[in-house]
């Protein structure tokens, strides 16, 4: 092999090595860019989910408060209902006639 051919072969070998190194750099760079992108996407998701969580927690608090208020109102209404029912029952209870009550009182006085 002549010196010229040897040099050319060495040049080709080095050129191939440079290309391989470049290729390796590319794949590593893609990996980094991909990780950065995934981190960015996860952070965006995190922000979105956190906001959604906050909203849901707020909503949950509001609903719980509304539920408690409704429960209290229901209890109060139930209590008023019981009183009203008792009163109604009392009012609706059959009473002795005037003649009978007079007779009962007279009998009592005679005892």
């Amino acid at each position: 092999m002549t010196q010229d051919a040897t040099d050319r072969s060495e040049t080709d070998r080095l050129r191939e090595e440079v290309a391989e190194a470049r290729h390796h750099l590319l794949t590593v760079q893609d990996h980094i860019v991909g990780l950065e992108a995934e981190n960015g996407r996860l952070n965006r998701d995190l922000t979105r989910v956190t906001m959604e969580l906050r909203q849901q927690i707020k909503r949950s608090r509001r609903m719980t408060q509304q539920r408690d208020e409704a429960r209290a109102r229901l209890a109060e209404l139930r209590s008023r209902l019981a009183v009203a029912r008792a009163r109604l029952a009392e009012v609706e209870q059959p009473r002795a006639s005037v003649a009978r009550r007079v007779a009962r009182r007279v009998r009592g006085a005679l005892r």
Partner: peptide, 10 residues
């Protein structure tokens, strides 16, 4: 091209 890491071989 090199800055973004070319095409993803995955």
């Amino acid at each position: 091209f090199f800055g973004i890491g070319g095409f993803s071989e995955t």
